[in-house]
């Protein structure tokens, strides 16, 4: 049986209490929400916090308000709650859809929105037992010095594998963080950092409280996920697309890829190509190519990297085509 290392487990009832506990516990402490990311990592000895502070008992994190002009999702909502929330499925279907594609129904009952947005980057040289990692002399993300995906590289190339994060970046959602200095808002894109180790800009003691979503006022969005199986698997490619239409013309667009870099990667060139267009086939093909060209998946997930790169073209095309169809049907 794979087991957790010993640690002290704290269950604060409020954000303030959690922050105090974190401060007292010092750097070798970790927050945990659903545990579906942290506990496997602890069992594989990626993380060995002395103190684990559970956020599950904090009611403030479970808030949800979708009726207002500033819709808000609490970070403590389970992925099942996000995926099945009836109104969200209408107003922000891309978010509900992405949450519903995470892992399995069992895991979604435990894993939280905040957990998925803060998901540790993944790499199949890293998500391995201590013994396995020892046999390759470890990697720089944990216990070693080299990134085996790109041994000459000074950085870690572990992959952002969240399904919901690319959608949040595409929607330009605002994350609400609370730390010792109080609350701050961070645009989703600014929450992530292109580095496999330092992949979040969040300070360790800060708690992700929730996400402010754009009000549903005419824009459309969708998320497509590529993986081997229909359950369990992390994305080897996620395509999140946000579109604002002005009549038949695209007024604003953001295409963001998951699973291909250490952060949800905005495809700026591809996005700009479609702004001002009617999203005809040529434009879609050009945008798909513009997303394909700079994408450099590394050999550290399921599937070969050439195929994954090729699939960015296919999946961006599919997403844009689907959004066009929706718009024309609407």
């Amino acid at each position: 049986m794979l087991r957790l290392p010993a640690f002290e487990y704290l269950q604060p009832a409020s954000i303030d209490e959690a922050l105090r506990m974190k401060q007292n516990a010092g750097p070798r402490s970790q927050y945990v929400a659903g545990g579906t990311d942290l506990y496997p990592n602890m069992k594989r000895r990626h993380e060995e916090p002395k103190t684990v502070i559970a956020l599950g008992g904090i009611d403030e994190l479970g808030q949800i308000s979708l009726e207002s002009d500033a819709p808000f999702l609490g970070a403590g909502l389970t992925l099942t709650e996000v995926a099945t929330q009836p109104r969200l499925r209408t107003t922000h279907s891309a978010i509900a859809g992405a949450a519903g594609l995470v892992s399995t129904p069992l895991l979604r009952n435990m894993g939280t929105l905040g957990g998925n947005l803060c998901l540790d980057t993944r790499c199949n040289y890293y998500n391995q037992s201590y013994e396995w990692r020892k046999s390759i002399d470890f990697c720089m993300k944990k216990d070693g010095t080299v990134c085996w995906v790109a041994p000459s590289s000074p950085r870690c190339w572990a992959v952002s594998s969240s399904d919901v994060a690319p959608v949040m970046v595409a929607l330009d959602a605002q994350y609400t963080l609370v730390g010792a200095d109080g609350e701050r808002q961070v645009p989703a894109a600014g929450f992530y950092h292109d580095d496999g180790i330092e992949f979040l800009t969040k300070r360790p003691e800060e708690i992700l409280v929730g996400v402010k979503l754009p009000a549903p006022n005419g824009w459309d969005a969708m998320y497509l996920k590529l993986r081997r199986r229909g359950a369990f698997d992390f994305p080897v490619l996620g395509v999140a697309v946000y579109l604002e239409w002005n009549e038949s013309e695209v007024q604003d667009a953001r295409i963001v890829l998951g699973g291909v870099a250490s952060y949800p990667k905005p495809m700026t060139d591809a996005s700009q190509l479609i702004v001002g267009s009617t999203l005809d086939d040529d434009v879609i093909a050009a945008a798909a190519h513009a997303a394909f060209k700079p994408t450099k998946p590394m050999d550290n997930t399921d599937f070969g990297l050439a195929w994954r790169k090729e699939m960015t073209r296919i999946y961006v095309k599919r997403a844009l085509t689907e959004l066009r169809t929706r718009h024309r049907d609407a």
Binding site: Y9, Q11, G34, G35, T36, Y39, P40, A54, G56, P105, L106, L107, N109, M110
Partner: peptide, 11 residues
């Protein structure tokens, strides 16, 4: 339904 391997007893 949840995964008992990832739920702490204390929780």
């Amino acid at each position: 339904p949840v995964l008992s391997c990832l739920v702490l007893g204390l929780a």
